[in-house]
Amino acid sequence: MSIQTPSDVPSTEPGTVTGPVHPEVEPEAKGLSQGQIVRKKFFDNTAAIISLVVFAVIFVLAFSSVGFAGIPGWWKYNHTEFLPLVNGGAPTVTGPFSWGEHPFGQDSIGRDYFAMTMRGTQNSIIIMFIIGALAGLVGVIIGACSGYFRGWPEAVLMRFTDVIIIIPVVLAAATLGEGVNRLVGAGAQIWLLGLFLGLVLWTGLARLVRGEFLSLREREFVDAAKIAGASNTRIIFKHILPNAVGVIIVNTTLLMSSAILLETALSYIGFGVKAPDVSLGLIISQNQEAFQTRPWLFWFPGLFIVLICLCINFIGDGLRDAFDPRQKKFSASRAKESAKPAAA
């Protein structure tokens, strides 16, 4: 499965400036630290902020409604109870504050679909964060070591990356998922699935980080640090890594959005989260045959996947916008317009 990350961003900044603009010469950016510039640019991005808010709402809803880690939630049902059918199993939600008995309806055996969707959303979010954290960590360490040390560490680590890259992710997930189910039972399934997927998805990030380190290690400030007697660890973590943090954060975010799609797709074809636990992909696959009679069983989980993924993508995009100092504002019409008087 190849999921590519789109690499450019819409900016919502007012287009009043002509010509290429660098943040460091922007008048209002004077005297701001790099972090402040990034934060300001990110918070100026409407799409990213809206996405952040929507994602926060989904996050709170999913974790508070059905409870998490033994803490009970405020919703009256859970995803495993069989309940008598109300309203023929159809959704009872009629407005934002009148949810009714089963807002998202019930599935064919009477389970509350809101609880199932929330549980699935929760699982997707957990897996997404584990993958993001783990793939980010492994990718950064491997990329940083091979980019900084060059020579044989680079050769070994990059060949290792090449080996991991061509192993089909579905196979890795299926193998590990099977082994996990045998070893620990279904309870810790979500965590371990995330863990294993994270262990195979770091390759793209490692290559990017390596590229970044390869160019940063030749810069003067690294030479200066070396002459000042800094250790390799210190140079890597204190001098180079902060300069590569933009690439890392942006690509980890985009990796997380593709991780959601990957997890749901794996669960859909039966290699991800398995019953009795719930995943958004799994409940879609269980209920797709009933599209004609019970379309809500298909719509709600799908909408949640799309919403989460869209939010993460826009957040990642906003971050890229904020971190990328080379980002330029160009407009063909404006360029033509400004060229006209010169030509006349």
């Binding site: 789109p6 959005s257 799609l261 749901t264 797709a265 859909y268 074809i269 992909g281 879609i284 696959s285 298909f298 799908g302 996947i305 799309v306 993924c309 869209l310 993508n313």
Partner: peptide, 8 residues
């Protein structure tokens, strides 16, 4: 489109 799960 990028956020749509392909099976959906």
């Amino acid at each position: 489109f990028f956020s749509l799960p392909i099976f959906w």
